[in-house]
Amino acid sequence: MSMTTTTTYDPSARRVPPMGGFNGTVLAIELRRMLRNRRTIVFTLLFPGAMLLAFGGQSGWEERVGSGNVAAYILASMALYGAALTAAAGGSMVALERSLGWSRQLRLTPLHPVVYILMKALVALVMGALAIAAVNVVGALQGKAQMPTHVWIECAVVTLFCTLTFAALGVFVGYVVPGENAMQILGPGLALLSFLGGVFVPLDQYADTVRQVAHWTPMYGVAEIARSPLTHELPWYAVVNAVAWFALFVAGAAWRMSKDTARV
């Protein structure tokens, strides 16, 4: 072991890391961390698949919907639910790490705070993709869902991007609710929003007033978008809903974070 014995340091010889510190080592370690976490595995890979098995086999699954059947419709919905839950859990970890002082520790390195959030978002996307893949594998094994392969893929990709909304929601809630309690709120909260937004039960089965309210809730818009490759239906107000909630959650997360950064 040798350490060079320099008596003077030359500040001008030092370099700043490229891309604000963005790198693969952090991504790999963060992913490994997520996959080691038993709770994440249950939320991400097991629970949504189990929900699909519970809901996906109800009577009428073989009826046609757009370019597929009802089982495919339920599959797309459950994939969204699973990925949203995963992304929200990932988002809430940002706040948790802040409360642990890890963000402060990272402020002693060249890592740019925006790059940190970017890497967290990437990890959340990968985990979301795993959640979507898990539900799809369960759906394929169940053998009831039918839709053309390209629709299957389109639904998955669109769903993945829709989950960014919930990653932002996770960050926001994580800041508002301190410590590890964020998921205690996000778990039931997302289930409730999923019921209201027509993820678990189609909206046309609700009374008219409930449906009017449902159109304003955050799961409604993304659910319509995520299933649109299958249903070929996408009301304009669903798109407005999705964009508005995404903007709102990102603004909320940014607001809480900037408040928090003031004291690092």
């Binding site: 890391p17 510190g21 080592t25």
Partner: peptide, 28 residues
């Protein structure tokens, strides 16, 4: 660089992972 009083560590990482994570953020 600094050694702070408390906090600042992730409990679920190993000692080596923590150091490797931090190392990856510097140019040299």
């Amino acid at each position: 660089a600094a050694v702070m009083q408390t906090g600042g560590l992730l409990k679920d990482l190993t000692v080596r992972e923590t150091v490797a994570y931090t190392a990856s953020l510097f140019a040299d």
